[in-house]
Amino acid sequence: MYEKGLRGGALNSESVLQRPFKEVNDTMARQKTKVKKQKYKKSIVIQSYVALLPQIIGFFVFSIYPIYWILQYSFTDYDGYRVAHFVGWQNYIELFTQDRAFWASVGNTVILTVMKLVMELPLAFILAMLLCSKSLKARRLFNSLLFLPTVISVTAAGMLFSYLFRTYNGFINNLLMDIGIIGSPVSWLAEKWTALFVIALMSTWMTFPINMMFFCGAIAGVPDEVYESAKLDGCGSVRRIFSITLPMIAPTFKVILMLALTGTVKIINEVMVLTNGGPSGQTNVVMLYLYNIFFGYDLTSGAGEIGYASAGSIVTTVLIGILTIFYLKFTKKADELY
């Protein structure tokens, strides 16, 4: 009896001891299934969707649909008024075989991009090196002053530069004539090469502070110890820039170059305000060329060769895509070389 009772008691106590664990286990398991079943809380789901709704609609209406639209109309002869006819690959064939102006504008875009990068990146790098020197007390002041061009609109900048570079009694012409570099006034914006130069210069003026800031961040990231040890090894300051700073900031440099490159190939505003493609289309860049076909040379007529321009847009986008991929591949190869 006693034994039995004891045993029973023992049994009992065992079960008593086990029960709470079992219960905990049970509730945990139940909670797990609950979590699995109701991973999403209904009210949160609804509120999230409602909050995102404008963006989702906007994504389809203003991001995806225009691309689809262009793709679709690039196979038609749509002109903005008459019914569009399907013409197959005709626009593309015409673009590749007959349209020299398009390819000239592509060429100008490349020239402009190279000009701008050659001016902008060294300038931004030098300024960043100067601004980064430890002993500079007035860094914030210089930084703020150098950043000022970034708040100027492209139309205002166009005014400023066409005023500086005007042919008769323009400041630059007067200056160059006083020094004796040129004998007679140069019509900067009326010649292809000088016009492209002024456009690149203005574009540089408007965006170099951003690249300067990127360089500043990269340079600040190079540890001092590297410089110190190089100094001990008798490394001169110029050598230090080329052997330490530049290789150390190479990853950032690639990103900066990438952004500058993809930003500049889409250039349109700067060209529009300074030359509007002139003289006679010689400074046309590809985006401006397409814009003019889309909207007609003056906005009043409203008739452009929409289908043709659409085909041009597709080709341009593909070209930019190829450029980007090529660039990424190339930099990867360069990485392996080092």
């Binding site: 991973k39 999403y40 809380k41 949160i44 789901v45 509120q47 999230s48 969707y49 909050a51 995102l52 963006q55 989702i56 994504f59 203003f62 991001s63 995806i64 649909y65 225009p66 691309i67 639209w69 262009i70 993809t262 190939v265 889409k266 349109i268 985006m287 397409l290 814009y291 889309f294 909207f295 452009g304 929409i306 321009a309 659409s310 041009g312 847009s313 341009t316 986008t317 930019i320 895509g321 980007t324």
Partner: peptide, 29 residues
């Protein structure tokens, strides 16, 4: 937020960053 399709929507929005149509989508817009 936790809702079905979050990753897809986020991914789609990110992808549009890489489409370099520039000013050419102005007309359809």
């Amino acid at each position: 937020g936790e809702f079905p399709g979050k990753k897809i929507i986020y991914g789609m929005k990110t992808a549009t960053m890489f489409l370099a149509f520039g000013s050419t989508t102005m007309y359809p817009t």
